[in-house]
Design a protein around this nucleic acid. Sequence first.
RNA 1: AGGGGCGUAGCCAAGUUGGUAAGGCAACGGACUUUGACUCCGUCAUGCGUAGGUUCGAGUCCUGCCGCCCCUGCCA
Length: 570
Amino acid sequence: MKTPDAPPNLPQPSNFIKNIINEDLRMGKNDGRVHTRFPPEPNGYLHIGHAKSICLNFGLANEYGGLCNLRFDDTNPSKEEVEFVESIQQDVKWLGFDWGDRMFYASDYFEELYQFAVKLIKAGKAYVCDLSSQEMKEYRGTLTEPGKESPYRNRSVEENLDLFERMRKGEFPDGSRVLRAKIDMASPNLNMRDPVLYRIMRATHHRTGDKWCIYPMYDYAHPLSDALEGITHSICTLEFEDHRPLYDWVIDNCLQDSRLKSRPQQIEFARLNLTNTIMSKRYLRQLVEEGYVSGWDDPRMPTISGLRRRGYTPEAIRDFCDRIGVAKSNSTVDIALLEHCIREDLNFKAPRVMAVLRPLKVVITNYPEDLVEEMEAENNPENPEMGSRKIPFSRVIYIEQEDFMENPPKKYFRLAPGQEVRLKHAYIIKCEEVIKDEETGEVIELHCTYDPATRSGADTSGRKVKGTIHWVSAAHALRAEVRLYEHLLLEGGGDEEEENSVWKAKLNPNSLVTLPNCLVEPGLAGAAPGSRYQFLRQGYFCADPDSTEEKLVFNRIVGLRDSWAKIEKA
RNA sequence: AGGGGCGUAGCCAAGUUGGUAAGGCAACGGACUUUGACUCCGUCAUGCGUAGGUUCGAGUCCUGCCGCCCCUGCCA
């Protein structure tokens, strides 16, 4: 027996983090536990990049039979709000993850963190420093030159203890003093040049109120929070790589003599970037505040709430996060992959329905005036269990404007003078006459004839036509507003370094096109907000929260692939 | 310049101890089709930033270059 302690059936490694975990498990580290955490700062809305982290952390826990905590990293009350802690919980839940009874706040540990700091002071490993932030900057040195030691670095333990206690009591003004770790002002790693552990800040905390006027820094609070929760693998993004020695220093020096549930290990991976959008909180905020979008949940936003309103499913987002992989190289994923994921999910789930976005009136001249036929229509050819429905057909219908061309190019399989098409679920019709507006020359109506022998499901003609188009019965159709969304940016994306003027110049002026006069089949009456459909030949759509009984409103989630559009372009 | 990382196709990304380049997206052909959708079939790295070295054999080991990212908040 070579590896008697190895758990059976370790997940197939498919990224470097699983390799690490598998190795840890083989070595019997952490008693075979895998415990991760998702640690958002409640200072904004979650976006698709966070979804990657959520899926990673909760996914790893699931795969290894471990646990994942939700922990709010709320150490800076000047930026954090309950509104965000609520939206974050909603989003994580909506994505399909469960933190059980393990929702924590770094602020839960403020008292313990304080006691650890006292311990560091007693051990001579931390000191109160009176340097101003400007002075501290000067003392820090540069990338190539070592820093200088603070004149307050060698205060006695007693003085430090006294000062730190008085910091807590509120005897000193904001910013006047800090508690610093005593490490190494000459370290080539700037994070190790006596980093600040606590600062004085009088701000009302969303949980602890005004109990504290000193707050711990991320680099101090995070490793301890991890250790206190028994986290085994603390996964964060690449920019924290340089902080890892400090992460380890804090744990080693605060907890070296305590019985640790685990010795958490920080592992860094590359954050998600997506083409055709922006991901930085700062820029997303600008879009909202400067009115480029309607809010954090505008369907064009890459926020979880935006994607949700747009009509994305949690399944599609999770699938996307699985497919992009986890690695350490900076990368920008093509948004086409996200779109592929939602199409694939909805292809099976979404009922088909007919909707005419830009209506063109068609009169079927040889169809009886008062006749209304109920045509049988399958709800989803990919999923027969979804059954079928009846759609009314009558003499006057509407078709899509782009499904008619007066002078069609070769291979245009739709309607044109003298040309035939099949009406989906109905008859083959032939265009006999084109009616135009006398003044503008615009085509306003078509007169067609139908062949009674070609009824869908009862076709006795045996005729084949190249094209099939969707339609809606004029007398039965419902009016609807449809919002067509496109990428936020025309090109680029993913580059957080870009200046304002650069990414703003790439904003897509057509990212939202509203069509107020669409016509949809009657079965859509009362479509519940959030319900998703495939509008035949057009794309996947989702009833918006703005939608009411009186006024239907649909968002385009994503268009169908369109090989005709490619031919046309060429 | 100091430190920390990264470099496998247009875009992601696998590649245990060196053994002869997974998979997905995109793209391009074709089949099927009452959605120009879906599905299916096929094509797509003699090549792994680059130059050397070790070896019977290198994406994997060694050395030197080159390129890109991150780090001088009392933000996270």
